[in-house]
């Protein structure tokens, strides 16, 4: 089982991301859960969203306490939520940032494997708006292979209708541009 936790702000689409991921995995014949950190949703407030993917029925009904992957939609959340605090030692930090791995490690002291993409720029260029949730899924898939890129086409289409093509292109662009650097021991 792979456990993924999204860190975002209310309105950035973290919940949409985990739902789409879960649907993509289910369409591949896998089992998955996508769910929000339950509570009153407030735009702008830090939020969490969770996704589990497995080859068999998932029986856990608790939050993800020790994730395999954290996806940080908004780098300003690093100081507030400290996303990798409970990340597994061999886990992956997927981060929206224009910075290089070297700069990120220096600034935040991260030891984990990094998957970095300037999702704000990709989203602006491809979508025309700086909404990064679908874009960041591209980076996540590049870093983990949790689902196939094309498995997201149908869920995106069902969710976004005519806007799905743009979102899929943003996701693909981010997939191609993601920089991965293995963890430091």
């Amino acid at each position: 089982m792979i456990e993924i936790r999204f860190h975002g702000r209310g309105g950035q689409g973290a919940v949409t991301s985990v739902e789409l991921l879960a649907l993509a995995a289910i369409n591949e014949g896998k089992f998955a859960q996508g769910f929000p950190s339950f509570g009153p949703e407030r735009r702008g407030a830090p939020v969490l969203a969770f996704c589990r993917v497995d080859e068999r029925h998932i029986r856990l009904r608790c939050k993800i306490a020790s994730p395999d992957v954290v996806v940080v939609l908004d780098p300003s959340l690093i100081r507030i939520q400290n996303p990798p605090a409970d990340l597994k030692a061999d886990g992956i930090i997927v981060l929206n940032t224009p910075k290089t791995p070297e700069e990120v490690r220096r600034e935040y002291g991260f030891k984990h494997t990094l998957a970095l993409v300037d999702a704000n720029r990709v989203a602006r260029e491809v979508l025309g708006v700086p909404i990064v949730n679908t874009t960041m899924m591209g980076a996540l898939i590049r870093a983990t292979g949790v689902v196939k890129l094309e498995s997201l086409e149908l869920p995106l289409k069902e969710r976004f209708g005519p806007l799905a093509v743009k979102n899929f292109n943003a996701l693909k662009t981010a997939y191609e541009q993601t920089v991965i650097e293995e963890r430091r021991s």
Partner: peptide, 12 residues
């Protein structure tokens, strides 16, 4: 059914 931890989960 348990609220949120079941009602709000996307699953197969």
């Amino acid at each position: 059914l348990d609220g949120f931890i079941l009602s709000h989960v996307v699953e197969a």
